[in-house]
Every structure is written in C-alpha cells, then in structure tokens.
Amino acid sequence: MNVHYISALLAVVVLGFLAYLGTEVLGLQSLFGIFIPYLAVCVFIVGAIMKVMNWAKSPVPFRIPTTCGQGKSLDWIAQNKIDNPSSTVGVVVRMFFEVLLFRSLFRNTKAGIKEGKITYEWEIFLWVGALAFHYSFLTVLVRHMRFFLEPVPYCIKIVETLDGFFQVGLPGVLLSGVVLLAAVLFLLARRVVMPQISYISLMADYFPLFLIIGIAGTGLYMRYFARVDVVAIKELTMGLVTFKASVPAGVNSIVFVHLFFVSVLFAYFPFSKLMHAGGIFLSPTRNMASNNRMVRHVNPWNPELKFHTYAAYEDDFREKMIEAGLPVDKEA
C-alpha cells in the first residue's frame, strides 16, 4: 500500500461518482455535457500555450552535445549523423525518431548487480509499453473523430476498419481500445510492483494513469457491455463542435462519466507531466545540432556593451605613443 497511488485512485473514483451522480440523480447533464467540456478545452489550449511560451523564454546558453554517437571530427572518423548531428537535417531526423519512435527511451538500461559487479542491461519493455500506449491512444483519438465530423471522412472510417480488422464479436472488437487499456495497466503495474520505480513515483505519476484507465475502462464498457445510444451521443458531440450544444434525450450517465474523465484529462494536461507532448520539441539535448566548435555561438541575450577596442585606443593616443617610441599598428 502506498499513499500516492491510493490517493490518485480515490481521486479518479470520486471524479467518476461526481459525474455519475451529477447526471443520474441531480440532472446536471448540461453542466457535465456542455459547460465542463468547453471549459476543459479552453483551459487545455490556453494552458498549453502559456506553458510553451514560458519555456520559450528560458535561457538555453549552450548546445548540449549528448554523445550517443560519434560527433563530427576528422574526416577518417565516421560520424553518427543521427545521434550526434552537426547539421539541421540531422537534427530533424533525430527529432523525428525521438517524437515518433521514442528513440532515447529505446536505449533504456536497467542497473543491477551480477557477480558482485554493477551491470547495465538493455531494458526494452518500458519502450514497448510506451509505444503501445501512445499509438493506441492516438488511434482511439482519431477514431473518435467520427463523433465530431459529419459526414465522417473516409480516412477516419479506414482507421476504424483497420482497427477492427479481425472482426471478432459484435460490436466488433477494436484493437486500439484493448491495447490502450492493457498498455496503461502495464505502465501502472510497473510503478506499483517495481520497488525502485514505486519509490520515485508520486501522485502526479499515478493520477494520469488511473484517469486514462478510467477513460479506457468506461469506453470499453460502453462499447462491449452497456448499450449506449451512439446516435444520441453524436448529436451531443456535434452540437459541441458546432457551438449549438444541447443534450439530447437518451444519453446514458456512463457517457457523462467518460466525457468528464476526458474533460479532466484535458484541463489537467497543461499543468502536469503530460506536457512532455509539447516539451519534447523543446528538449535542448535533442533539438540542437552538436556544432559547438564549428559555428560561433553568440549568447542571444548578451547586453549591448560599448567596448573601447585597441584600434580606437591607438587612435586616441597615436601621437603620444609615437613620441614615446611605442610601436603602433598604423602610422599617423
């Protein structure tokens, strides 16, 4: 038992009950279905922009050549152009792999002691879990665009068709939802079970995990177990994105629980570790070419100072210097 994950779990359960009781008993459908989603999206957009602008103001004085590979050196030493790029193209390639394939996480190692010696072993499972989690979440998000677009574009339909490729059961199992829940449960189990990871985990680490478990859990429950009126839900969501929001009859309370969890995730996003989504683009160790000595880097916030150069000094005292027999660069 650990107070950090128990409190995170409790927080998510309380949020779920809040939305359920709020809509089922108190009839606050418009609060949970219209007002809170709008508020959450506004907080998300404004919060994320403010966070990034704040980061943009931070001083980044030096380039940090994290040497995961050989830097540019003599001609006969092969440079690792992706891991230690010296050009913008190389940086773009490195960022591409970092953002889309989590390349630095791929290099994750695990420290241990074997035969009395400290060892570092390659540990791939966090990378696999992270990749499964992020891509299934992206697929789920793209699929949900069917609720926000009418007519539904072909590219979104094709994602859903591929997602349900195996045509298991009815309604057909969509792989992304199942993979999402499995991956997020794995990421949670990792934090709970492994003592070292558990030791460094705080409520801020557990809360998003439980929240996403809540989102995926209610989503899967609605699709495969409860029967919800999808047409009514789409009427609600279409109203939201066209600013003509109203809550149609027949929308089950579990839908509002799902929607409330998503709203909380959106509103929480800019103020949490989840902002790594934006932060990855600003990582100084990833987004700068390792060209410290090839290019002269002038500190951009150096103050404008007036220097008295030697040439100017000589101009001031040239005659006196010649008189005193001192050597001058430029004769009078």
């Binding site: 999206v41 998300f44 922009i49 990034v52 677009l149 279409m238 066209t242």
Partner: peptide
C-alpha cells in the same frame, strides 16, 4: 508550432463550420 497545435485541436470546429447536423 503553437499555431499548428491550436489548428489541430480546433480542426473539428473549422471543418464543420458551425453547421450542426442533428441526428436523423
């Protein structure tokens, strides 16, 4: 980057152009 982010997040609103499509 931030402009792209805002456009992506709000794209369902742009695509629908405020035209509500009620349930059939």
């Amino acid at each position: 980057g931030l402009v792209i982010f805002v456009i992506l997040v709000t794209c369902p609103m742009w695509i629908n152009m405020g035209k509500n499509k009620p349930a059939p």
